[in-house]
């Protein structure tokens, strides 16, 4: 019997703890597949965040460090400066990367720190039960914006790709989504480009993945995927925001 599908070596056998319909699982698999395909699993060191992906160190089949909330890019910096030839990545949510850890994110990018950041933007705090995220949309109802996010009180959602792409140190910045197969395949390509940028020592790379949180959005998985497409994508346009890699441009 021919093998038609095999689990990537980039993931351990530990079952994911994520809610049904959550897209974290998809992105984990994409990152793991990319590392396997690029042949870097044996020299990869990942940094897990605080947030829903806090147990990422249980899933990625490589050396891992668990960071404090928001500090993953600083931890990754420390690791990378000790092992400049290893592949160092962080996996962070929107609260971790764009609220409490904004300074660490921006300065890792500004330094051109040669690491790869996987940024899960699902417009909400998942682990703590559905509070407003820095990326929650205007009007979005959350536990802490029960009447909808209002600019006069909560300001505006942060567009990290746009912001970071202005920095010289950033080498590859792309926003993708995973709401259908086509976009999942494209997301994988983007993640591969980001890791390739790191392998080629080009500097900071980040892939923002528009993701779903059916549980805290109060939707079915399918409704949630549609919400990414209909509500999130117009505010967070997909695409490559920075690409300093000629070779990547050609491949992509």
């Amino acid at each position: 019997m021919a093998v038609v599908f095999q689990k990537t070596k980039g993931l351990t056998d530990t079952p994911f703890h994520y809610c049904p319909g959550c897209t974290h699982g998809i992105v984990h698999r994409l990152v793991a597949e990319v590392m396997e395909e690029l042949g870097v699993l044996d020299k990869a060191i990942g940094v897990a965040p605080v947030g829903c992906a806090v147990f990422a160190y249980e899933y990625f089949n490589c050396d891992m460090q668990e960071a404090a909330h928001g500090r993953a890019p600083a931890v990754a910096t420390g690791i990378k400066r000790v092992h400049p030839d290893k592949i160092v990545f962080t996996y962070q949510g929107d609260g971790d990367l764009a609220a409490i850890g904004t300074a660490e994110t921006v300065h890792a990018a500004a330094r051109g720190e040669n690491i790869t950041v996987i940024f899960i933007n699902n417009a909400i705090y998942g682990m703590t039960g559905g509070q407003m995220a820095p990326t929650s949309l205007i009007g979005q109802e959350t536990l802490t914006t029960p009447y909808g996010r209002k600019p006069e009180n909560n300001g505006y959602p942060i567009k990290m790709c746009e912001m970071l792409s202005t920095l010289e140190g950033a080498s590859y910045i792309e926003r993708v989504s995973v709401y259908d197969v086509k976009h999942v395949l494209n997301a994988k390509k983007a993640i591969k480009n980001a890791f390739t940028a790191q392998i080629n020592k080009k500097g900071f790379s980040m892939i923002e993945v528009l993701s779903s949180c059916p549980t805290n959005w109060g939707m079915s998985p399918n409704e949630a995927l549609k919400w990414i497409k209909d509500k999130m994508e117009p505010y967070y346009p997909l695409g490559v925001y920075k690409n300093t890699l000629e070779e990547v441009k050609q491949n992509g």
């Binding site: 460090q65 600083a74 420390g78 300074a103 660490e104």
Partner: peptide, 26 residues
């Protein structure tokens, strides 16, 4: 060796955590 001026003490100590965890004397 590596000298790095961090953006804050908060960041610096987390770089230490990363580097120490990666096996260096920091």
């Amino acid at each position: 060796g590596v000298f790095l001026q961090a953006e804050s003490e908060v960041s610096a100590i987390n770089m230490v955590y990363g580097a120490g965890g990666a096996g260096a004397r920091v």
